[in-house]
Nucleic acid binder design. Structure first.
Length: 250
DNA sequence: ATGGCCTTTATCAAAGGA
């Protein structure tokens, strides 16, 4: 089984910059997108054949939003976490399959001056509890833009970004608590030491210089570890300021 | 502290991103 996750930074813009080509050639069974910045009817998907589409738009037009495409049949889906405070921005999609849950998330950014960090920390805790609950019922495969680089190895300039959104101590600790709740950072499982990034600023030629951050992840329940086949980051794929991250299971 | 760049909205400037 092949799965992929990509923050597309506006699906309408990414469509002709590499998204369509990547999806049609990826042979992925499940495709999870974040920051689609559109409602489903605004995104022409006639080229996408064989996949069921689940869409969770934000209430605010052109902002945030997630989507999942699956060619594997699933039993049901849910939008959000069933928490009114956290469900206005189209950030979570859950699909229930016979043998596992799939969760796609776009974690809120802490914003300049960390002005949204208090909200972000509430979100992190609710999301952790949400995954933990699902994990008690079935194995969980959880992907998305978690908007945090976990360790110093996960970004090119750790010292300079110490108090910046995405690398504050609080956000990093939030990620650690999520992992400690019984999840595996699959990329690090296979590759404990390499520096690979999934996001680069559009500014200052950051991508060409590989000055990036690893903020997009596939996390899986501990019990899935033995079924992991590969976890890849695809910096060779363009179309967004993020690149896709892939997971392959036996 | 600021700017660097890109997508989107409702413009022809501002917000948001991380």
């Amino acid at each position: 089984m092949k799965l992929t996750s990509w923050n597309v930074n506006g699906i309408r813009a990414s469509m002709d910059k590499g998204l369509r080509e990547y999806i049609t050639s990826s042979d992925a069974d499940i495709i999870c997108l974040q920051e689609v910045k559109a409602e489903q009817h605004q995104a022409p998907l006639d080229w996408l054949t064989g996949y069921k589409v689940v869409w969770n738009p934000a209430a605010k037009k052109g902002y945030s939003g997630t989507a999942v495409f699956s060619r594997l049949p699933f039993k049901s889906h849910a939008l959000g976490m069933n928490l009114p405070e956290h469900d206005n921005e189209g950030r979570v999609i859950t699909l229930e399959f016979p043998d596992f849950y799939l969760v796609n998330v776009y974690t809120p950014n802490a914003q300049e001056e960390l002005k949204r960090l208090p909200y972000r920390m509430k979100w992190d805790e609710e999301y952790r509890i949400y995954l933990e609950r699902l994990g008690k019922q079935k194995p969980v495969l959880a992907c998305g833009d978690l908007n945090v680089a976990h360790q110093e190895i996960d970004l090119a300039r750790p010292k300079e970004n110490r108090r910046n959104p995405g690398f504050s101590d609080e956000e990093r600790e939030g990620f650690t608590r999520l992992i400690d709740s019984g999840f595996v950072d699959t990329f690090r499982h296979f590759d404990p030491s390499s520096k690979q990034y999934s996001w680069w600023s559009y500014r200052a030629n950051a991508r060409a210089n590989n000055v990036g951050w690893r903020i997009d992840y596939w996390l899986v329940s501990e019990c899935v570890k033995s079924q992991l086949k590969a976890a890849r980051i695809r910096p060779d794929i363009f179309g967004s300021d993020h690149c896709p991250v892939e997971l392959e299971l036996k």
